Simulated scan of single mutants.
Amino acid sequence: MISKFQIAYKSLLRKKVRTLLTVVGITLSSLVLVSLFGFNQGYEKALNHDIDNMGYQIMVMAKGCPYEAATLMLQGGKGLRYMDPGMVRDIAKRPEVQATTPILMQAFFDPNKGESGGIAGYFGVDPSSYPAMKPFLRFRKGSWFVSDTAREVVMGYEAAELEQREVGDMTMVPEKNVPLKVVGILERTGTQDDGTIFVPLKTLQQIAGTDKITTIGIKAKKDADLVRLENELYQLPDVQVVSFSQVKQTIMKLIGTARVMVLSIALIAVFIAMVGVANTVLMSVYERKQEIGILKTMGAMPHDIFVLVWTETLMLCAGGSVVGIMAAMLCNGITDLFIRRLLPYAPSGGLVAIDFRLALYTLGIILVVGLLSGLYPAWQAGRMRPLESIRSE
C-alpha cells in the first residue's frame, strides 16, 4: 500500500525546479537563523571566558586615571595620578575579596618608535600576586622574575616581536636609560597582555621615582555580591572603580542592538521562505485538481486530502531546514571569521556555538512556521468538490 509520504514525495518531484528553489529558500533561512542563535550563545560564552581570564573582575584606580590616556599619548605620561599602596591592604580585608594585586602603569617616550617617536608602556606587577591572578598566561620561553627587585622584564608576544627580543637579551627603558634583562616571553593570548612589558613593581617604582601605584586588581570570591562590593569601593576617597561586569553589560547591550536588527532580517528571510512554501504547495494543489477529485470519488475524505497536502509541506520544510542546519555547522568557521571582520570588538574563542539542542530548536521553529504556512493550501485542497475538480481543466 502506498503511503501518504510516497504520494507527497512523487507530487513534489513533478516540478523539480520549483521544489528545488523552495528547498533552497528554506535552507538559507534556516542557515541564517541557526547561525544567529549560535552567535547569541557563542559570543556571550566567549566574552565570559575572556573576562574570567582577566584574573580580576574589578579595578580600582586613581580618579581620572582612565582619562589620562590622552595625556600619556601627547605628553609621555605627565600628570598621571597615583594611589597609596596602603589601600591594597585595606581592600584585601573586605570579606568579599579573595585576592588583590597592585599595579603601576608607567609610560615613557621612545624616540625609536616611528618617525616622530612613540610611547612605550610598562606594567609594574607584584611577582607574588599577579601571576596567581592570571594562571592562564603561558610562556613561550623563560619564566617570571626571580625577585620583586630584579632588573628584569617579561614581554608579551607582540611586544617581543616588535622589539625583536629573545630571552637573555637586554632592553633599555626609554628616557631613563635603565637596562633590563628579558627573562620571559609569553605565548600569544589574543588580549592586551600580548603588547605589554611586565616589570617587577618595586623595580619600576625605583625607575619612575615613585613609591605609589596606579591600579589595584581585585578578584572577588565566587559567592560574593559584586554590586555591594562595587558600591563600597565607590565610597573610597579619590578613586574610581571599573568593573568588568559593567564592561560586559555595556558590550552585550551594543551587541544586543545589532542582534535585534539581524534577528529581524532573519525572521524576514524565514517569512519569505515560508511564502515560497505556501506558493509551491498551493500551485501543486491547483495543478492536481482532477487527481484530488478522483481520490475523493474513490472514498478519500477531506481530512485525508488535508493531511496529504500538509505532508508535502512538512517534507519541504524538514528537508530544507536539515540541510541548512548542517551547512551552518560545516561553515561555522567561515561564519566566525566573517563576524570578526564586522565587529569592532570580538572576544577570543569561537563566536558561533551551534550545539544539538540549538539545532533541534531551530528545526522546530522552521517546521512550526512551515506547517502554519501550509494550512491554507491544505484547507483549499480538502474543501474541493469531487465533480467540479474532475471537470476542471
Rank of each mutant, 00 (worst) to 15 (best):
I2E: 07
I2A: 07
K4V: 12
K4W: 15
Q6A: 12
A8D: 04
S11I: 05
R14C: 03
K15Y: 14
K16C: 05
L21H: 05
T22E: 11
G25Y: 02
L28P: 01
L28K: 02
S29I: 10
S29W: 13
L31S: 01
V32I: 12
V32Q: 04
V34Y: 09
S35D: 00
S35F: 03
L36V: 09
G38Y: 04
F39Q: 05
A46F: 13
L47N: 01
D50N: 11
I51N: 01
M54Y: 14
I58N: 01
I58G: 00
L74H: 13
K78F: 09
V88C: 10
R89M: 13
D90E: 15
R94F: 13
R94A: 10
R94K: 15
E96Y: 09
V97K: 01
T100G: 06
M105L: 14
M105I: 10
Q106F: 10
F109P: 00
N112D: 02
G114A: 02
G117P: 12
I119K: 00
F123I: 03
G124T: 04
V125N: 01
P127C: 07
S128C: 06
A132F: 14
K134R: 15
L137D: 03
R140S: 07
G142C: 12
S143P: 00
W144I: 05
V146M: 10
E152V: 14
E152T: 12
G156E: 06
Y157D: 11
E161D: 11
Q164F: 14
V167E: 02
E175M: 11
K176V: 06
P179D: 02
V182W: 14
V182Y: 14
L186F: 12
R188W: 12
T191H: 10
Q192W: 15
D193E: 14
F198Y: 15
P200C: 06
K202C: 02
Q205W: 06
T214P: 11
K219S: 07
D225T: 04
V227W: 09
R228N: 04
R228T: 02
E232F: 07
S243H: 11
F244D: 03
K248W: 11
I251E: 06
K253S: 03
K253N: 05
L254N: 13
R259L: 04
V262M: 14
V262P: 03
V270W: 13
V270H: 10
M274C: 12
M274Y: 10
N279L: 08
T280G: 06
E287F: 07
I292E: 00
I294L: 00
M298E: 00
M301E: 11
P302I: 08
I305W: 01
F306Q: 07
F306D: 00
V307R: 07
V309M: 09
W310T: 14
W310E: 11
T313D: 02
M315G: 00
S321E: 02
V323F: 10
G324C: 13
A328R: 03
M329G: 13
I334Q: 08
G350C: 10
D355L: 15
R357A: 14
L358Y: 03
A359D: 04
G370V: 15
A378F: 09
P386G: 01
S389P: 04
I390M: 12
R391V: 00
R391G: 00
